[in-house]
Design a protein around this nucleic acid. Sequence first.
DNA 1: AGTGCGGCCTGTCCGC
DNA 2: TGCGGACAGGCCGCAC
Length: 271
Amino acid sequence: MPELPEVETTRRGIEPLVVNKGVDRVLIHNASLRWPVPTTLCHLLPGQKASRVWRRSKYLLFDFNHGTLIVHLGMTGHLRLDPAVAENRKHDHVEIVFTDGTALRYNDPRRFGAILWTDDDPLEHPRLSALGPEPFAPEFNATYLYQRSRNRKVAVKQFLMDAHVVVGVGNIYASEALFRAGIAPACHAGKISKAAYKRLVETVVEVLKEALAAGGTTIRDFADSEGRPGYFTQSLCVYGRVGQPCVTCKTLIKQIKLGQRSTFYCPSCQN
DNA sequence: AGTGCGGCCTGTCCGC
DNA sequence: TGCGGACAGGCCGCAC
């Protein structure tokens, strides 16, 4: 389940493998994703080459000569580069074959992801235009969060996970950042003090950076192809630890639902 | 405008 | 051992 660190890790891995390679052809094996994969890609992309791969929120953006390919990994999306002659696997949706004989394949069992195309400024695309700041950007600070949250009754965890407020904070890292900041997840966003938001900004940045340094480890990927457990899994203080003692005070971790999402917290440390 | 929630999906896990 | 159902969750889009 890619959150921002996983998407950024994917970007770093993929970019050097695709930049400046000419597209030979595009094969759409299964257009069914969140939105149908535009079939126009098949005649748009051949002959073009990607100049860079960048990221906004959890969207990967492949700049081509005449537009931008927008890729969202959803919950279970994966990009991999392998020989064009390699057999397709189950749930391979799209294959971009390069003239050098390699192919970029998008695989997504649960189809929550998306592949879109724009020949305009991708940041103006409807999916991206209303997004909040990046968590590592200076605009994401205590004053911003405090002002945005006034009069908001929504739980602070849901507020934090709202991509219109700040991007890239998914369910796991929201619980972790709130724990580290000592803020109860169900507290109304509008009731949180500026000092607490200052702590929250710091812990969000901290948690995301740690996860990124750990290679973007996630919960369910923790046995990778070589059987290695993910590093960040071992750093989780509350997520998935219901009934286990708090690492700080030994109080048992609680689990609740907020906005239909599992939420974990220490009832003693977070208030 | 803010809020709540159904829906999209399949692999995994649990209880019977 | 097999099977059904709950669960996981990013994010849209609708209803109020």
